[in-house]
Design a protein around this nucleic acid. Structure first.
Lengths: 171, 171
DNA sequence: TATTGTTATACTCTATAACTATA
DNA sequence: TATAGTTATAGAGTATAACAATA
């Protein structure tokens, strides 16, 4: 209790309005012009629900996405996959390690380029993904089910537009 | 190079379609029914740009949000703040520590409830936030500037609807 | 008993530098 | 010289259990 951070007297000269909002309503008006905040809140809600949904299959959001891409693109290289999902290559390595350890995907040497690995899903990987996709649909119903079809399509269209245009312009 | 993960021969019997998508286009069709994926991508782009924008002020997204709330709600308690921003109380403690160490906010004992602290921004905190808010506006122009007013308002309305309804129903 | 703030901790996510083996 | 994959590592972000002080 002698932590100076917790015991420091308030410098009243520095504070314009010392009014204490005791039992009054907390205002989030200052967040209104903070679009990114709402993106983050939705992301948090979505991520937490999806993590729970995928837990029974031992998958996380990123391993689920990776499995989707490998099943849909047999022979995909790690570098292609990393670029497609915007995952740093070093991080993808341990993700593939994890999926391979569980025998859901395999790494095949590419004869024409011995630096590269071609990724394929195993039968177990395809089957697990099928179940996980259903869990994802249930998750989407929970998280996005209150939206009309038009709202949901508008949301995705807007999100794609943001990313595409931002990537095209800046960074 | 004797890591079994990297040298394991592929079990061809387990793989339905061994076709290698060598130089062909990578398909992300399987992500189409994965709304959360697009939320995540937009969140990633936004977070990276905002982090850069706030760096000159020594702020992160979360410290910026916290500072906004304290400036707009003088006397706010930590527990109210944690609830308002959906931050776990233990995590908020170190965030407030950080802001207080930099003399941007102060913790005042509440006479009527000696367990609680009332949070206030200092003059330095208010001034820094003013600059950071401008940096956030510039950031928003970069990340969301390609949207029409209607699209941007629709996006925020949809995001708020998702979170409000999800909180009301489930978890 | 319940709540406020706290400590400690652990796990996930993300990012970067530097290495190897191939091209 | 450049690229594919890798190793190691560090910093954020997030979540939970358990505690002291106070209500």
């Amino acid at each position: 209790m002698d932590d100076p951070l917790k015991t420091s007297a308030r410098d009243h000269a520095n504070v314009p309005a010392p009014a204490a909002s005791d039992a009054t309503q907390v205002s989030d008006a200052g967040l209104r012009e903070f679009t990114g905040y709402f993106v983050k809140r939705t992301y948090s809600v979505m991520r937490a629900d999806l993590a729970q949904a995928l837990k029974p299959f031992g998958l996380r959001m990123v391993t689920f996405s990776v499995l989707v891409m490998i099943v849909d693109n047999p022979g995909l290289r790690q570098s292609q996959l990393a670029a497609a999902l915007a995952i740093e290559r070093p991080n993808l390595v341990v993700i593939i390690d994890e999926l391979q350890r569980r025998k859901l995907v395999v790494r095949d040497r590419v004869p024409t380029d011995r630096r590269a690995y071609a990724l394929h899903a195993t039968k177990a990987g395809v089957e697990l993904l099928e179940q996980a996709r259903q869990a994802n649909r249930d998750h989407e119903a929970r998280v996005f089910g209150m939206l009309s079809d038009a709202e949901r399509e508008g949301l995705v269209a807007t999100l794609r537009k943001i990313e595409a245009k931002y990537m095209e312009d800046g960074s």
